[in-house]
Design a protein around this nucleic acid. Structure first.
Lengths: 123, 123
DNA sequence: GTCGTTGCAAAGATTTTGCATTACC
DNA sequence: GGTAATGCAAAATCTTTGCAACGAC
């Protein structure tokens, strides 16, 4: 154990350099060498979400993934082969058109499924 | 216990008449009176997904929700107030534009957050 | 010494599975 | 009787929490 929050910094750095949101388990596996406990990772992630530094990404797979806030508006691609989540830049217009009157929209998520470049090539 | 698959029919009917996908727990609560076990519901849902009659909807909230397949292409709205999931008809064009080259798309989901008509009025 | 952070283990919540029982044919 | 479905309880996952110990100040 080093200085308090050292682990938090490591996790934040990992998330920032990642090409997509990571699950607690994915983070844990990346940091196995540091001897960090899974519970600590969950705690850091939870603090991050509460403080607004991180947010949750809801993707299929049974595990919640996390990413830093403050990224450019983006969406996610989930590769059906390697199961990785990848950030996609950009968005699409017209979302408000599919919501009934009297509904108010505060946010949205778009999730695309398919095969990423790596897995498309490997196939 | 009645005739085999009786429960399955009940669950399918419940999902078909629902205005949005339901979680195993939501189904269980609706059917408490029938004495059905939660495990049975999970089994029926799983069989439904495997047989192609049902599909999973991945919405935040820690519980997987299910809905019948064969519905018109649609997306989901999750009310931040009442936490209900509501089907939205329609879709938006241009999704393929946000995917990098060499990625192939096999499907997509759109999730909108906000306040449904009921909760907007109540506010 | 105090405060926040950590690791481990236990507890929770959701979902799955084992097994004996029951229902239908 | 044979096959499939069910209920209960135990197991498997993922996540959270309790608690004692550790590090920084």
């Amino acid at each position: 154990m080093r200085t308090p929050s050292k682990h938090a910094e490591t996790i934040y750095a990992l998330l920032k350099q990642s090409s997509g949101p990571l699950s607690a388990n994915e983070i844990w596996q990346s940091l196995q060498a540091s001897g960090i406990g899974l519970a600590t990772i969950y705690r850091i992630l939870k603090r991050g979400v509460e403080s607004g530094a991180l947010c949750e990404a809801n993707l299929p797979g049974g595990q919640t993934r996390y990413e830093p806030t403050g990224l450019k508006h983006h969406h996610h691609f989930l590769c059906s082969d390697c199961n990785r989540a990848i950030d996609l830049e950009g968005c699409v217009p017209g979302l408000e058109n599919i919501v009934p009157p009297n509904f108010s929209i505060t946010g949205h998520e778009i999730l695309l499924f398919g095969h990423c470049a790596d897995c498309s090539e490997a196939a």
